[in-house]
Simulated scan of single mutants.
Amino acid sequence: MSVQAEQPFTRFEKSFPSSQKQNLAWVIFLSLGALGIWVAFRAQFWMWQYIVLGLWYAGLLWFGLKWPHFRLFTLVVLAIAGSGVGLYALGYNDGNSLLLRYVLHSNAMFDWMSAAILISAIGYYTYLFRGSETGGLWGQRFAWAAAALGFAGLAIRWRETYIGHPNWGHIPVSNIYDVMALFCAMTILFYLYYEEDTESRGLGAFVLPLVLIADIFLLWVGAAYHLDRIAPLVPALQSFWMKIHVPSMFVAYANFYISAMAGLAYLLKDRALARGGFLRDRLPSLEILERSFSGTIAFGFLFFTVGTILGAVWAAKAWGGFWSWDPKETWALIVWLNYAGFLHARSQKNWHGRPMAWWAVISLVVVTFCFIGVDLFLGGLHSYGKL
């Protein structure tokens, strides 16, 4: 009887492999999630909310089907964020809960993320300079942990914006502290995808130290300027468009920074092939590195274009015009033209190799000034971002 009972299940296993079952489970999970969001918030939805929900659903579905590790990562982030949000829902806060104060509060989560980034960078450095596979493995593990803590911390921080006053509630991308946390988590996540795609950990010794610098800046603006404290939004930021413009730009920024590090790794690898050295064996091939910095620029350019268009729409709503030659807008145009020139030279002029690697590296200066420099040093309509 037991044999007969097992036969249909055995036939099902053979006809429906484990990978297909996992893909189906991911589709069902996301579909139920999207349906739940629609049921909970449909009274507040208008056309653009439906469009954004559909794009998020399609994007997460595609990413999860293409990259199985992303599925587990998503569940971990939801579990951590759900724990923090759940404690707030039960009436706890960082004053009466040690777990919230030292672990699940967003600021604590970003501190733990900082520790994970530091350990990850050390692990990748150990792999690059000493050839330690164990160091590279731990670098990768702590990179996953840092990304999960970063995204979960942002989700919890979103909930925390409603605690000071219900009208304060907003997506946590409103100041430099918030967006630096987003940048760190986003850059690490995209790097992990490219690491798996290239089957090499050598680039981690370039990307994670760069993220560590951004993380130190995050801690500095939090401690020195108290930007880690949640405050009400200025009128210009009280807009639906902030929810889609800023994340789009940071998908672009993350990929642009990875492209610069891949370009630097290309130049060092090329030099090591000519003169010898340990980098010759511990970095991906020149072909893979060129594909990496070109692919990340193309992907980032797509999102930067979309984000710039969304920013223009937001500007029209907030300030009455799509374009005003504000310093942030001007530098965004410079960044767009720079990477458009890169893609044109590569596709139409057939430029390859060292010139394009140098272009990717030097572009780091342009994109960094657009990302941070304008907010720090220039005024204009984006002066709310200054320290």
Rank of each mutant, 00 (worst) to 15 (best):
I156R: 06
H245A: 06
T161D: 14
G164Q: 11
W144T: 01
Y339S: 03
L237C: 10
P172W: 00
G379Q: 09
I213L: 14
S200H: 06
S285K: 02
W359E: 10
G54I: 08
L310Y: 05
N23P: 07
C370M: 14
I117H: 09
Q140F: 05
T198L: 15
P166D: 08
E160Y: 05
R280K: 14
V335E: 04
S114F: 12
V207P: 10
W323P: 00
K317E: 15
G139K: 10
W56H: 14
G150C: 04
P232S: 05
M1R: 09
G385Y: 07
M113S: 13
L104E: 13
A315C: 04
F278Y: 14
R346S: 00
F256C: 02
Y127P: 00
W38A: 13
V367Y: 05
L90D: 13
G64L: 12
A89I: 11
R346W: 05
L32H: 05
R157S: 13
F322A: 01
H226Q: 14
L381R: 07
G311Q: 05
P355R: 02
A116N: 05
H344P: 00
S285V: 01
F73T: 02
N255D: 02
G311R: 01
N23Y: 04
F256S: 04
L289E: 04
L99C: 06
L264G: 09
A360F: 00
F304K: 04
W48H: 12
N96I: 07
F129A: 12
L182S: 11
K328Q: 02
N23L: 11
L60Y: 15
S174M: 05
R354I: 15
V52I: 14
E13N: 11
P232D: 07
A79F: 13
L53M: 04
I163K: 12
W220M: 13
W314A: 09
V367T: 10
V234E: 12
W67Q: 12
T161R: 02
P235F: 02
A332L: 11
A262I: 00
F250K: 03
M113V: 07
I122G: 06
S383G: 05
D270L: 07
T305K: 10
L60V: 07
M356D: 07
L60I: 10
G139E: 00
Y194R: 13
A318C: 01
T161E: 13
K66E: 06
L310R: 03
I156H: 10
N175A: 07
S114R: 02
V39A: 07
T187A: 06
L203Q: 02
I117Q: 06
T198Y: 10
R42S: 13
G373R: 09
P247S: 03
I288M: 11
Y162M: 13
E196D: 14
C370V: 07
M47E: 12
G36N: 06
L227G: 08
S114G: 13
D375G: 12
A252H: 04
Y102C: 08
R271V: 12
M356Y: 01
I334V: 14
L208Y: 01
L267T: 15
R11V: 01
R157A: 12
M261P: 09
R346V: 00
A152W: 09
R11K: 12
G341N: 04
Q20M: 14
